[in-house]
Nucleic acid binder design. Structure first.
Lengths: 149, 149
DNA sequence: AGTGTACTTGCAACTCATTTGCATCTAGAA
DNA sequence: TTCTAGATGCAAATGAGTTGCAAGTACACT
């Protein structure tokens, strides 16, 4: 991990009231480098020579999630995936049902959606979060499917 | 189960190429009467004197899901919930993060969303499904929270 | 820089949803 | 009524995620 990133990670942790421990810095660094949400297993496997126990990764992610530093998403793979929270863009994911490939998209129009939902669900006072995933077929798998048919 | 409903369930099953067995009819009936998505455990518990093995319920729901008769949703409770698919309305759910209460809402504007996403995710050819859940606080829990604060 | 303590980690064992193998059973076609 | 592919029940396995506890360490305070 380069020093700049490391310092950034230390700051993030301290601000949230966490100690800047080695396992936490490693997990944060891994998330910073990840292009798409990663699973606990991928994080553990990606630690290389510096091994972190799986339980520790669970606990770290649980804490970071509560602190609003990471978000958890469900791709219907029977496990959770995590990524750093992007405060600028409320982005979501589109997942290939064949190969699991993931891409981002923005524009879910959350404000309008929440307002519309609250108007219909009279028993609800507020909306605090949302989850949205699209499932589709990537170009590669799409071609393969046509050929196979 | 009244006979009308039962006949309807038999028809649904036969049309999808399934045998109209007692466990399947019971599960379908349970789903027809449910106001909101139910878990496997709720289904098993709700069978009363006619017990169905949990594994059987899993297999039935798996089959019905593939046949497009039921849909599976994730309320972040660590288990899946199922409901009959509503072909007329593409509805979604708003879930109370405190007590688990659920209400429906419509108007996710799926067509527009899918088109927008496909324009951004250049690696994807088609979108086949989507999941959307809102998480909030119901009126009761909302009041309770304020009082506690 | 040294020390103490509250916060962290690692390990083992556990919980709980979901899946699988297999023997038995049965819906519905012949 | 008979036959058989498809269903079910039971037991055991799988795998994600959690918990209790002893040992380790970041960092606040000398």
């Amino acid at each position: 991990m380069d020093n700049e990133r490391r310092e950034e990670a230390v700051t993030i942790l301290r601000k949230a009231g966490f100690r800047a421990t080695e396992p936490r810095l490693l997990v944060l660094s891994f998330l910073q480098n990840a292009k798409y949400p990663v699973s606990i297993q991928e994080i553990v496997a990606g630690m290389g020579n510096k091994s972190i126990h799986q339980v520790t990764v669970y606990r770290i992610l649980h804490a970071l999630k509560h602190a609003g530093i990471v978000t958890q998403v469900d791709f219907r793979h029977g496990r959770s995936y995590y990524e750093l929270r992007d405060e600028q863009h409320d982005h979501h994911h589109i997942v290939c049902v064949k190969c699991g490939r993931v891409e981002d998209f923005v524009g879910c129009d959350y404000e309008r959606l929440a307002a519309k939902a609250l108007k219909q669900a009279r028993g609800f006072a507020t909306i605090v979060s949302h989850s949205l995933e699209l499932f589709g077929m990537c170009n590669t798998c799409s071609k393969r499917k046509v050929r196979a048919a």
